[in-house]
Computed example of a mutant assay.
Amino acid sequence: MSALAELLMLTDSRLPTGGHVHSGGVEEAITSGLVTDLATLDAYLCRRIRSTGLVSASIAAAVHRGDLSVAAADAEADAHTPAPTARLASRAQGRGLLRLARRVWPESGWDSLGARPHLAVVAGRVGEVAGLAPEMTALSTVYTTMTGTATAAQRLLALDPGDVAALMFGLAGLCQDTADLAATGIADLSDPLLDELAERHATRDRPLFAS
């Protein structure tokens, strides 16, 4: 299978990794009145790409290159995800991707990742096993950071799918630039607003999404 085909499969929203039950904080942003339409969704996605997307992609690329051990990468992901709820969401999605990876590449030594690794850690290892370049692993991580949140917002706000797709096409350049930056080394930042939204969401009564 070609690396491009593998990349397309890894970024497919139908991939059964559990990502469809996570909104990347946008459910709470909508409930709080911060995201109300396409314009505010665009701003939210840009913020998420530049923060969560960049950090996750930088860790994934470092794991892919072998610059970080699994333990060191897991510690980096914890350190850059201050909100406990966001850490739980990352580990839940990491476990989902790990479960799939075991089925697709059963002989690739997945036990070394532990039982509940962060999503970025698994993504880095999957990119390596799939034969992608580290830059492609970074790009797939950034892209899925955007698309999962955009899809959740589309459902919650009953937005026109064509409008949301056009919005994401408009962010393609930002995704590529962010992935290029992520591939150069570990990004050292977090976003207090996204952390606050994650913690606030955890206390909400009967949310539709897990995060």
Rank of each mutant, 00 (worst) to 15 (best):
A3H: 09
E6N: 15
L7I: 02
P16F: 06
S23A: 15
E27F: 01
L34D: 02
T36V: 14
T36S: 13
T36R: 13
T40A: 05
Y44W: 15
Y44R: 13
L45N: 02
R47N: 12
R47A: 10
R48V: 15
I49H: 07
I49N: 06
S51D: 08
G53C: 02
G53I: 03
A57H: 09
I59W: 05
A60C: 10
A60V: 12
A61S: 13
A61E: 02
V63H: 07
V63I: 15
D67Y: 00
L68Y: 10
S69I: 07
V70Q: 00
A71S: 13
D74K: 11
E76R: 12
H80I: 02
T81R: 12
T81N: 12
P84E: 08
A86D: 08
A89D: 00
S90D: 13
S90V: 00
R91M: 12
R95F: 00
G96E: 09
L97C: 03
L98G: 04
R99S: 14
L100W: 15
R102G: 11
W105E: 12
D111L: 04
G114T: 10
G114R: 08
A115D: 15
P117I: 11
H118A: 12
V122H: 04
G124K: 14
V126C: 03
V126P: 02
V129C: 06
A133M: 06
P134I: 00
E135T: 11
L139Q: 10
T141N: 03
T144Y: 04
T145S: 14
M146S: 06
M146I: 00
T149Q: 06
T151K: 09
A153V: 13
Q154G: 10
R155Q: 04
R155I: 09
L156P: 08
P161H: 05
D163C: 07
D163G: 09
A172D: 08
L174T: 04
C175S: 05
D177C: 00
L181S: 04
T184Q: 15
I186K: 02
A187K: 11
S190L: 01
L194E: 02
D195I: 06
E196D: 15
L197F: 01
H201M: 01
A202R: 12
D205V: 13
R206Y: 08
L208V: 11
A210R: 10
